[in-house]
Amino acid sequence: MSRSIMDLSIGGYVPGDSFLHRLDPRTKLLGMLSMLVGAFCSESLEAAAISVAAAAMLAALTGAGWRIWAWGLWRFKWMLLIVFLMNLFFHSSGAAPHIGPHQGPFSGEVVRSSLALSLRLISAIMVSLALTFTTTPREMTLGFWRLASPLKRLRVPVDEFGMIMMLAMRFIPLVQEELRNTIDAQKARGVDFGHGPIVSRARNLLALLVPALHGVLRRADHLAIAMTARGYRPGQPRTEYRPLRFSLRDLIALLLLLAFTALQCYQPVFIFPAISSLT
């Protein structure tokens, strides 16, 4: 496990002042949704490649730098590999081509669809990371809150869900910190997590999970007391220190993203006929 970027966690925010940082969180949430729809509404390899390219442009716009991006994506290597292999082995369509006298194991179609699925997943991960890298949990919750507020008329407790969501997001890095501290503490007394037979390694995990869980519950307890002490009451209206502002920039960004998704879902072949005719 790389320890080089230890302060950035899953769902972590990378401070900055890029174009994406300055967008309204509602724009980014809707934009992400639109990009995800775009990535998954076409099955072709070309469309998947275009999704990745678009996601890469977003990645460049976050201003986080390639190291953070490389580290962020590298963590998904096993998931991507497993998805790729599962699709390769269990999604059969078409006949495998003959290579010389032998029949190959997979048809070209399956390889293409597996690749396309992996690319679509990569673009989905990148779009999500672009959102979390540039949006603080606070902004994200505010955005979600506002987008969902029409549901209040249907008596959906939007405010409470928003608070739960914000606390959950705030807790992800805390849980990671708790785990990291526990790993360090156990290593410091000579526990060696990386070696030994797999069964005993799994048993060593108890030395990690029990204190970490204990720590997280303690934090949750403190949090509840702190919230009560500051007068938080479920169901009471809350004010905002920094209200959201939807600007012209947001409108343009959102229209661009929706147009991109529409094009991708409608018929990617029309946009890049040259590529499709090659394959």
Binding site: D184, A185, Q186, A188, G190, G196, P211, G215
Partner: peptide, 28 residues
């Protein structure tokens, strides 16, 4: 090199004090 980090009581996890103290010796 034995390091006692801050608030080391938070690293305790085993069922009994004896088992917790002897954990590393028993396992490694």
């Amino acid at each position: 090199v034995g390091v006692v980090l801050q608030r080391p009581e938070r690293q305790l996890f085993d069922e009994t004090v004896f088992r917790d103290i002897s954990f590393v010796l028993r396992r490694f």
